[in-house]
Design a protein around this nucleic acid. Structure first.
Lengths: 391, 391
DNA sequence: CATGTTTGTTAGTAAACCTTACGAACGAAA
DNA sequence: TTTCGTTCGTAAGGTTTACTAACAAACATG
């Protein structure tokens, strides 16, 4: 029995549609496609865009005139090239027409804010001491910082991106952030009302992984481990951020490592990742060891041992994740003097020895190049993505 | 500086478009949407579909007439209901017009095949002994079984779905399957050429997780652990299967567990999951313990200890994955006499004690209800998804 | 200077959905 | 029995979208 009259093959795009599509959605898709292409490749002509997107020159021209009408795209004169044919008119995203405001609330004692260009460059930054403020007082600090940063913008603001510690849902409600004393804090909605600007709130580690993806040249599958006062992770699979069923994806700080016990954690368990790896724990351990050491050489060796063990622990906890997701790229974010040395070396060695290296490709582990601005830049990516569909 | 003239908000659908969209793609999306709705809800009128999909009655009628032309949808008389207005004409997927052929190659010694209805019910099944065949001989066994099963179909065949052990890429090439002696075996393409039918080849655990999702009422985020001669996992996030950068997602069989050593594994490492949990290892350990036990009570306790320890090991390795992905649902597939008891109890207890239970929701772990047919049914889901966009 | 090439635009076409309108079929009330 | 309102499915016409075809402008080259 053969497949006589069997239905046509469905393309990947049509797998499990969840919503109806109308003609106007086509326009939005293609408009964003053009913008995205221009954002990434920069200076291009209409004909270039047509070739790259597969759309016709006519359609691209039409979309471009719409985008120019919104001041999102500008013409930059003609291409200087000695070729036959009419010279191309170069286009680019109008990178100075708008700015992005970002806040990083993940610092333990200090909130940071900045104005960024559409390219993710920090143009100016501000800080506010948290000074132990919690709950509504902490919200006031955030609102105050936001107003300050907004005032420093020198172009229309495309939107506001905020990276917050804790568990943040898709609507930008901070479900739980112990450090700031927030529970079910509707941060996005409140700040949107207060400022009249589009606001996006995401978890800090999720913001960080977006920054690494967009600006750090990272792959489509990526795990970023952010080490600070706590330890969290951001996860990108197929270029999409993973949030988890209860928006707590990446919350690996209180997963227990290994089958021996470990240091007691504030959460009550023993051997949590955070008890091994958080910055306060590491600095305290290093301080103790240095104080007890007889000679500088002894001290150095003791410090190296501490960092190596911490790195090994990180490798142990990441190995199942790397195996289950077949991850090839892991990025660390945090104090380089702690992470970038024996620690990361031990982590990658542990990972390689505990997973099946053959067949699964070669694992890469590196420090982020984004430095301290990683959350700010990631929050900006959220804004670009939400407002322009670009990143 | 405010957002004067800031561009419109982009919907989620437009985030990162990668391809141009044409008007005909709309049609495909909406056609599939209608088919999907009908597949899941069954008996519905055109007006019902219009209300549920958001499309107009006119558009739904047009799509339905197209689908009826392909014999995919049929009318089933009028609704028997005492209501004002013209009675509705009930529609349904023509569930007997097509059948699906599935193969399960994951058995250690035996290959299974079946004809399934569009609902995923097994209509008839066949088996072939592998008899140690490897490489090209194993391929011949598969082709022979496939021909047998195809001959038993009693309706046009929608397509062929195959669940294979090992690493399978998106094109259905089996990159590596030690048990079958395959390396870069283009199974999908070869069988497609041989049969003239659409063929889809996926990893067996990935097929299984699709079956659990479609037929087992599972959630959108789901991890399925398949315990057999080896141990593998299938992962679903947001309703989408995760394949991994090198198509090896779910290959957790050779990840090392814990910080004490463990049994030596065939891969050379000590303490791999497979060394703790594979069916041969467990049955051997149980056999030894039973033989050494003085009394039946001793034997029972020893068996329980072995299964509890295996379950604990599974919990240890899954904890970081569950934490990192914020998974709430885990399903086990394999011999229930081994898995469904002390083992699964120990796994879920270990998971709960090693992850942050609060905030992340309550974890569920259960046996699959799909039994031995799970891979066959999952392979059928692949066909439904590829050919009709339905599942 | 004629020719060929490339760019961007104009005009017309096809596909998809929508809105509006209508006949058919039914229950309920006058 | 007749009238009215409701619901279903279809028909006709309009809008949006991107496409094809054709063209003018601007340039290099022989």
């Amino acid at each position: 029995m053969t497949a006589t009259g069997a239905p046509r093959m469905i393309q990947d795009r049509a797998l499990r549609p969840t919503t109806k599509v109308l003609p106007e959605h086509i326009r939005l898709n293609n408009r964003t496609l053009v913008l995205q292409t221009l954002y990434r490749s920069g200076l291009q002509s209409r004909a270039d865009l047509a070739r790259e997107t597969g759309l016709t020159r006519v359609t691209v021209s039409d979309l471009i005139s719409e985008l120019m009408g919104e001041n999102l795209v500008i013409e930059l004169g003609q291409r200087q090239e000695s070729r036959p044919g009419k010279p191309a008119t170069l286009l680019d995203i109008n990178r100075v027409a708008f700015q992005i405001v970002s806040l990083d609330l993940s610092g333990h004692t200090r909130l940071r804010g900045a104005v960024l260009s559409l390219d993710g460059a920090v143009l100016s930054s501000s800080e506010v001491e948290l000074a132990g403020a919690r709950g509504e007082a902490a919200f006031d600090k955030v609102a105050e910082l936001l107003a300050q940063v907004i005032a420093r913008a020198t172009a229309p603001i495309l939107g506001v991106g905020i990276g917050s510690p804790g568990i943040v849902d898709r609507a930008g409600v901070v479900r739980n952030a112990p450090n700031l004393g927030w529970r079910d804090q509707p941060l996005q909605a409140r700040l949107q009302d207060a400022t009249g600007l589009p606001v996006r709130v995401v978890n800090d580690a999720n913001a960080a992984v977006l920054a690494e993806h967009s600006f750090g040249g990272a792959d489509h599958d990526l795990l970023l481990v952010k080490v600070g006062h706590g330890v969290g992770a951001g996860l990108l699979i197929g270029g999409r951020a993973i949030f988890g069923e209860r928006f707590a994806a990446g919350e690996i700080g209180h997963v227990v490592i290994g089958t021996d016990d470990g240091p007691l954690c504030v959460c009550g368990k023993s051997g949590c990742l955070e008890a091994w790896l958080s910055v306060p724990r590491l600095t305290a351990a290093i301080h103790d060891a240095t104080a007890q050491a007889a000679t500088p050489a002894d001290a150095e060796r003791a410090v190296s041992d501490i960092l190596t063990e911490a790195g090994r622990r990180l490798g142990i906890i990441l190995a199942p994740v790397v195996g289950a997701l077949n991850l090839l790229e892991i990025v660390l974010s945090g104090p380089p003097e702690l992470l970038d040395g024996p620690l990361s070396t031990a982590t990658v060695e542990t990972l390689r020895s505990r997973t099946m290296a053959t067949e699964t490709g070669d694992l890469t582990l590196r420090m982020t190049a984004q430095g301290e601005d990683i959350v700010l830049r990631g929050a900006a990516v959220m804004v670009l993505s939400a407002q322009l569909g670009v990143s």
